[in-house]
């Protein structure tokens, strides 16, 4: 689940960096029109960006960094944080995306049969809701990140006069053919149906 915010952060960072790079490139191009220290010259741009002052600040900082003291420790912490952020961004870029398809067959010649999660969830839900004693079924389907198969989580709601074990067993057997075909690991939970939560037929 952490990959979703990481990917969003990676995209945002890439966008902001590209924007900054584009602005910097444009500014450099514009301030290269003239030479010496005229209005549109690079020394003027450096002055606008207060680079000489920044040079002084960085110089002072580097001098204090050479001595042992709080500045060095702050720098170590900042460096470690930068490495951690860098690694997180790399994970956001390189981690494989979850295939939203469930593969039923994958032949050596490249032919494959696959199905999207939504119809399979609908099928699983319908199969479970056909079982006696099940009022409503909720399904969650997560394809495996690597290869075929995935996990199917079922929640079967039942009335008070039904035993949860019976409901779980019948729900499991109802989705077994589907789970077997798509190599799904099934987990069934039962919950007592809430008042007003009733299937209408």
């Amino acid at each position: 689940m952490i990959l979703v915010p990481l990917r969003a952060l990676t995209r945002l960072t890439a966008f902001v960096l590209l924007l900054a790079l584009a602005a910097l490139g444009l500014a450099t191009a514009v301030f290269s029109i003239q030479g010496d220290s005229r209005t549109l010259s690079l020394p003027k741009l450096a002055g606008h960006l207060r680079l000489p002052r920044l040079d002084g600040i960085v110089g002072d900082y580097l001098a204090s960094l050479e001595r042992s003291g709080p500045t060095a420790w702050v720098s170590v912490g900042a460096g470690a944080a930068a490495v951690a952020i860098g690694l997180a961004l790399l994970v956001g870029v390189l981690a494989p995306r979850r295939e939203r398809l469930l593969v039923l067959e994958d032949e050596a010649d490249g032919s494959r049969l696959a199905a999207r999660r939504r119809p399979l969830r609908q099928i699983a839900g319908t199969l479970v809701e056909q079982e006696r004693g099940v009022t409503v079924a909720k399904t969650r389907l997560r394809p495996s990140r690597w290869g075929s198969g995935g996990r199917l989580r079922l929640t079967a709601f039942h009335p008070r006069n039904r035993k949860p074990e019976e409901i779980a067993a019948s729900a499991s057997s109802a989705v077994e053919p589907l789970a077997k075909a798509f190599r799904l690991r099934t987990r069934v939970r039962t919950r007592l149906g809430e008042r007003g939560r009733r299937r209408v037929q």
Partner: peptide, 13 residues
């Protein structure tokens, strides 16, 4: 004609 992949995008109940 090479490989033929079939993806079931939806099921019409």
């Amino acid at each position: 004609l090479g490989s033929i992949g079939v993806s079931i995008e939806d099921i019409e109940l």
